[in-house]
Computed example of a mutant assay.
Amino acid sequence: MTPKPRSTPNPTPKSFVPHGFSPVMLIAIATLTFLFLSPFQKFAQGQQAPGQQFRMGERIIRVAEPGQLADSVNVWGDVGSPGRYLVPKDTRLPQLISYAFGPGTLSNQQTQLDWSKMRIEVNISEYSSDSGMETLTQFKYRMNEPLPEGMRKFKLENNQVVALQVKRRPSIIDYAQVIGPIISLVATSIILVERL
Rank of each mutant, 00 (worst) to 15 (best):
K155R: 14
I182N: 05
P5K: 15
I60H: 11
L93N: 04
P5G: 09
M133V: 12
R59P: 01
F43W: 15
Q47L: 15
M143A: 11
R119V: 00
P146D: 12
L106V: 06
V73W: 07
R142L: 11
F43C: 12
L37I: 06
P94R: 05
E58S: 13
P50A: 15
S38T: 11
R62I: 07
P39T: 08
A163I: 01
S184W: 04
N159V: 01
H19S: 12
P13E: 06
F54T: 03
Q165M: 08
L96A: 11
G80P: 01
E134K: 15
A100V: 04
L32I: 08
A28Q: 10
P103R: 03
W76G: 01
T188A: 15
G150T: 08
G20D: 10
I183Y: 01
Q109C: 00
Y99W: 12
I97H: 04
I191V: 13
I29R: 04
Y85C: 03
L136K: 14
A187E: 07
Q110R: 05
K140E: 09
L164C: 02
R152S: 14
F21Q: 09
R195M: 07
G104W: 02
G180H: 03
K4E: 15
S131E: 13
S116E: 05
I97W: 04
R84Q: 06
R152N: 13
D130A: 15
V79C: 02
P39K: 08
P39D: 09
L96S: 09
Q41H: 14
I179W: 05
K153V: 13
R169C: 00
V24R: 14
T31H: 00
N158G: 03
P148G: 03
P5Y: 07
R55Y: 08
S129Q: 14
S38N: 13
G83Y: 02
G83M: 06
I97Y: 07
P5I: 11
P18R: 08
F34P: 00
M143F: 10
I179D: 04
F16V: 09
R6F: 10
G77V: 03
M151W: 03
P13F: 01
P181D: 07
Y141Q: 05
Q110W: 02
Y175E: 09
Y127W: 14
T8E: 14
G20C: 07
L113Q: 03
A187M: 12
V122H: 01
Q68A: 15
G180V: 02
V79N: 04
P170Y: 03
L35P: 00
K89A: 13
P181Q: 06
E194F: 08
I120K: 05
V75Q: 05
P50V: 13
I173R: 07
V122F: 02
R6N: 10
S98R: 15
T111N: 02
P23A: 10
K14C: 03
V193M: 13
D114M: 03
M133K: 15
H19L: 12
D130H: 11
P146S: 14
P146E: 10
Q177V: 04
L93G: 06
P94K: 06
T33P: 00
I172Q: 12
